[in-house]
């Protein structure tokens, strides 16, 4: 699995690594959709801090992941879009279409309403 998924309380945190292939992103979507059910997760944070490029495919897939999570009953927030990546997305005319975003993991968990104190564990 190219993208580690951590469980923190009722939330799942997926930290996307640099130079992710298209295939890894599609894998992540499938894996998350399954784990939301298995762990009865209420929310998902997708951390893209390490991602240096978000092109049209990447953006579309990320959007797909978020919408899939929502359909599975979990709120999804994308965090850590780097300033340069944001500029490039704007110039490309890309948007995340209503998928909530937050500055970083902490803000993302706050947005999902994390109460904290659970400690992250690998699942």
């Amino acid at each position: 699995m190219a993208v580690p998924i951590l469980k923190q309380g009722e939330f799942l945190i997926a930290s996307i690594q640099a130079a992710l292939s298209d295939h890894d992103l599609v894998d992540l979507r499938d894996e998350l959709a399954g784990r939301i059910g298995r762990f009865r997760a209420r929310g998902v944070v997708i951390d893209v801090t390490a991602l240096d490029v978000l092109d049209s495919f990447g953006t579309r897939t990320l959007r797909g992941i978020a919408h899939t999570a929502r359909l599975r009953g979990a709120k999804c927030v994308v965090v850590g879009i780097q300033p340069e990546v944001a500029f490039a997305m704007v110039q490309l005319g890309l948007s995340l279409d209503g998928v909530p975003t937050a500055l970083d993991l902490e803000e993302g968990l706050f947005l999902l309403g994390a109460r904290g104190g659970d400690g992250a564990s690998a699942v």
Binding site: D52, V53, D55, S56, P83, E84, A88, Q91, L92
Partner: peptide, 16 residues
Amino acid sequence: STDQTLLATAISELAR
């Protein structure tokens, strides 16, 4: 670094 990202993104789209 901003221009590097813009270039890398353009290359990504063209390669795609």
